[in-house]
Design a protein around this nucleic acid. Structure first.
Length: 292
DNA sequence: AACACCCCCTGTCGGC
DNA sequence: TGCCGACAGGGGGTGT
């Protein structure tokens, strides 16, 4: 599920249950996810109050009154479920296998927050709050794609001289942090840029953004904003924390649409699927330039 | 340094 | 119906 719009949607769903509330009890049902849980994981959370729930890139950060921050990443298949009768929350069916309910946080307001992750590519860490930015995972992270730093000049600096394809550069979390396979494909289509184009070809000899590259910041912002407004994308029945389904997948223009007509007005092309760096890329060979 | 590839793990889906 | 390979929203690690 989780690229920036999905993680932010999860954050918004969990915040009412967690922010300002105290953790009464934690069930940690296995020793590890992608990585081992931190030593004394449950004990270090028990009795702690959650001061705030933040997001950085695709990470969720729960700042605790102990001075530690619970760092959570959802990997490919992680999701949270909130159960309880807290105002603003509601029960929803446990439609995912309880065999993959790996962590349950019992909150003093009567809610419980369950982390489910079949593939276990997600993970949880505890890091001193003041050291999060210096942590190995965060130190090299790139800019937030919805922040003011994303503009054509930034992309020109990032892409200049690079031979890697534009798709790979946009997926590189050290440049821009938060985009994933879906929204990179969607943003490149909206900007009319081929995912196969070498990054450096989108920058002039003088280091200026080409016209195509100059369209990319708005394309990224627009697709992320639209996805956020839709509550993210729900593939394979992934649910938001409150049990509802995001619906941006109905607005995909290219992702998972191989063989479909390109939605660009007057284009007439057909969406293609290719593999780049081992992952599917969807694009329109007719309106995404330059052609490979 | 930059890039390509493999891997982690489970579930699902399409083809035969 | 059953089996089997391909593939899935991420990203860390390694080899060239």
């Amino acid at each position: 599920m989780p690229e920036l719009p999905e993680v932010e949607t999860v954050r918004r769903g969990l915040a009412p249950a967690l922010e300002g509330a105290r953790v009464l009890r934690v069930e940690q049902r296995r020793p590890d996810l992608r990585f081992p849980f931190p030593p004394d994981f449950a004990r270090r959370l028990t009795g702690r109050r959650v001061l705030g729930l933040r997001r950085r890139a695709k990470y969720l950060l729960a700042d605790l009154d102990s001075g530690e921050t619970l760092v959570m990443h959802l990997g490919m298949s992680g999701s949270f479920r909130v159960d309880g009768d807290l105002p603003g929350l509601f029960h929803h069916p446990r439609d995912k296998s309880a065999a993959h309910d790996h962590v349950v946080f019992h909150i003093e307001n009567g809610a419980s927050v369950t982390y489910n992750d079949p593939r276990r590519f997600g993970f949880m860490l505890l890091v001193p709050t003041g050291e999060v930015d210096r942590h190995k995972l965060f130190d090299g992270l790139g800019i937030e794609p919805l922040g003011a730093a994303l503009d054509a000049a930034f992309l020109a600096r990032a892409f200049r001289g690079r031979t890697a394809p534009a798709k790979a550069l946009l997926l590189d979390q050290r440049l821009i942090a938060g985009l994933g396979n879906i929204y990179v494909c969607e943003a490149l289509h909206r900007a009319g840029i081929s995912p196969l184009a070498q990054g450096g070809r989108l920058v002039t000899a003088a280091g200026r953004p080409t016209a195509a590259l100059a369209r990319l910041p708005d394309a990224i912002r627009e697709v992320l904003a639209a996805a956020l407004a839709a509550g993210g994308s729900s593939l394979r029945d992934h649910r938001q924390a409150d049990g509802s389904l995001g619906y941006f997948q109905h607005s995909f223009r290219v992702y998972d649409r191989e063989g479909a007509a390109c939605p660009t007005p007057g284009c007439g092309g057909t969406i293609r699927r290719v593999v780049q760096s081992g992952r599917s890329t969807f694009y329109c060979p007719d309106c995404q330039k330059p052609r490979p």
